[in-house]
Design a protein around this nucleic acid. Sequence first.
DNA 1: AATCTAATTTACGTTAACGTAAAGGTAATC
DNA 2: GATTACCTTTACGTTAACGTAAATTAGATT
Lengths: 122, 122
Amino acid sequence: MQNPNEKTYSITELSKEFEITPRSIRHYEQESLISPKRVGSQRVYTKGDRVRLQLILRGKRIGFSLAEIREIITMYDSPSGEKKQTELLLDKIEQRRQALKQQQQDILTTLKELTELEQRLK
Amino acid sequence: MQNPNEKTYSITELSKEFEITPRSIRHYEQESLISPKRVGSQRVYTKGDRVRLQLILRGKRIGFSLAEIREIITMYDSPSGEKKQTELLLDKIEQRRQALKQQQQDILTTLKELTELEQRLK
DNA sequence: AATCTAATTTACGTTAACGTAAAGGTAATC
DNA sequence: GATTACCTTTACGTTAACGTAAATTAGATT
């Protein structure tokens, strides 16, 4: 049940909250990463849209391209359909998982090196 | 003590080992991320250069820009000099550490979401 | 001597992710 | 009714990180 009285946000509200420019948000929309409603010509963002924006920004922080983020979002949105399709999705998920595990390792290594460096500086 | 008989590598050797193009390696050199020796006009990479290349690639995997990687490398290379300089370095290290911790969190969140999604697909 | 093979430099091209005007619409406020 | 605030679209500009092609060099092989 979607509450029609649910709180909504304007583009500048969101841009301020997440410290990005409206231009970026519009860009994400152009890239089909988010699809706000319109009231007249103005974009209106629901809580769901806000969550999606957070997801986008989280993706960016771990170095995903917008194309990769779109892929992930598409996975979320895909209706549990064909068996063949599902297989493909599971494959992609596994690939992502591997990349993320690698990243975890890389981060751990880098953190250690930073600590070493810090010691050396004292 | 640097062993002058130490094993060295050509640019294509390294490019094959790490599955990148020679162009990329030359580009990193242009950006002052690596400085191989020359024998005649040809680049010759020592083991140390190889390690540095690995560091670069690791940085890339966690989403660092070449500029950020250069900053980190510079920190490594900086001789423990002025007290003021050292303070600045320690600051930068701390900043990096914070960003990396954030990334760890983001990755954990993403991994969880992937798992949820996987469950949903079954 | 000619032909590979692997390297070099120079330089223009490409893609992603926005930045940055410019020109205009609408609704509230002075 | 004019200004202000906030939004819109269109479109060209910018930066990073290489890709790609052209012209050249130098050593090894046929």
